[in-house]
Amino acid sequence: MNTLRSIFLVAGKDLRSEIRSGRNIITVLFFALVVLIIFHFAFDLADVDFTTVGPGLIWVAISFAGILSLQSSFAREGDRDGLSGLLLSCADPTAIYLGKAFSALVSLLVAEAFFLPAAALLFNTDLRPVMVPLATVVVIHTAGYVAVGTLFSAMTLKVRRGHLLLPVLQLTVTIPLLMSAVKATSGVLVTGTLAGAGIWLRVGIVYDIIFLVAASLLFEPLIED
């Protein structure tokens, strides 16, 4: 129970400061929108059917924008060497990892909750009928993205010029997750049901489990100094 309390302590601390300023979420949201608009003009997508290109666009935008969110996840502690303070205060590193991952997941999901309707609006499509299956797919794949991203965020914060390395690390390791997310989303958009995602839903869940477990185990050896 102590671990669970620590997790919520860490997550709560981050989320409170997030809600107070909202800076992180707004930056991520606007970056994702900019990516969308850039794609729109790069490929002239005004007349293209949303179900064919939409899933790819959405997930590329989320992948890129998510990097910003991850960069600030541990940087918040980095300013005044808060990570060591955090380690001293609540001891269990796995709880810190899970708390951080949870708060990163929530803030990325909030950004997505604004981003997806905006994307639907820009591409003249209505996502309301598929809201529930789409939300399921988004939550599953965002969880995998954040699970591995939180680990890399802590890692790159500790090396010099690590912020250069984070996008490369994160985007390379999440290539299969991006593939799964795009396929699952397009399956949902085409059929309108969660069953349309087919095998990709399972790929997403397996990815989540593998990397959540691996990252929980590896976080402790990673941050000890």
Binding site: L151, M155, L169, I175, M179, L218
Partner: peptide
């Protein structure tokens, strides 16, 4: 850490690319 994470990624990459 990366050596472990990268190798865990290998089977997922393989099956994703296959089913793609």
């Amino acid at each position: 850490v990366l050596g472990i994470i990268a190798f865990l990624d290998v089977p997922i990459v393989y099956f994703s690319v296959r089913w793609w």
